[in-house]
Amino acid sequence: MAAPAVNGNDKEIKFEKSPSGWSIIFRELMKDKLALFSLILFFAIVIYVFVYSMNIGPDQIDRIDLKNKYSPPNSIHWLGTDYGGRDVFNQLIVGARNSLTIAIAITLITSAIGITLGLIAGYFGGLVDNIIMRIIDFILTLPTLMIIIVFVTLVPKFNVLNFILIMSAFYWVGKARLIRSKTLAERELEYVAASKTLGTPNRKIMLFQVLPNLSSIIIVNMTLNLAGNIGIETGLSYLGFGLPEGTPSLGTLISYSRNPVVMEEKIWVWLPAALLILVMMLCINFVGQALKRAADARQRLG
């Protein structure tokens, strides 16, 4: 190589990133003030919940104080107490942490399984696709909610981990189908054929060529799924098939309202949890909508 060329190339080339990926999402969020506010609020809630709950020991949640049962909000118990005199605010924070942990874990696990299997099925097609899709079809035909309820009643020691695993076992199928359908469209494009002729192995093409092109769909889907998973968890807990009472969740707090007296006269027990769910779901959905628009150039605001 000639010396001048070396010198010429040694000078740093300015790294000009064109508007793509994160910057588009960022611009979209800046344009959509509601989504930006939602995002900040959601992260504030999440951080507050996780940080504050670290200071709450189990004895603080479980401590029964029968003299103070159903005491309305006051300076010691910010949100009052429940039928056992337990502090509602502490339960709300720990419950929100449990609900969020479950929702986030389910979202991550289902995404990991769904993306892997969806990519493999869509990319290779043929027999592999057939086998994976028949398994997915089988799981789809199962009455998911019934099985989860039966599982919850059968398992003697039920905790957060069990709950995450049983939910993840059923909810990855939708994601796998979505990823597969997008991969099917993507692998017909010439750049995949080009990568093959350039000697790139299949797994590299899948991970580094096809997957980045699905990133926007995955981000949008994960966000909206997170809201859905919070809903599923609280719904099951409300019905009494979620976490046991010792581990509070937003659903268990709301389920106190099944008692008509609590429902009508002791609204401080269940209303904060209901509002927290509402706020979080709305936040996630607003952010999700903004991400969805960012993924589709025709709908973009910014």
């Binding site: 793509s20 990926g21 494009l189 010439e190 750049y191 054929a193 080009a194 990568s195 002729t197 350039l198 000697g199 790139t200 060529q209 980045p212 092109n213 990133s215």
Partner: peptide, 27 residues
């Protein structure tokens, strides 16, 4: 593979839109 290469018909779909030129040519 090295000895036989191909130029594709459609310059739009034959380059991965998520990759920078350096990554495309260096593949």
């Amino acid at each position: 593979r090295k000895d036989i290469q191909m130029i594709f018909q459609d310059p739009y779909s034959s380059l991965n839109p998520k990759k920078r030129v350096i990554d495309i040519i260096a593949e």
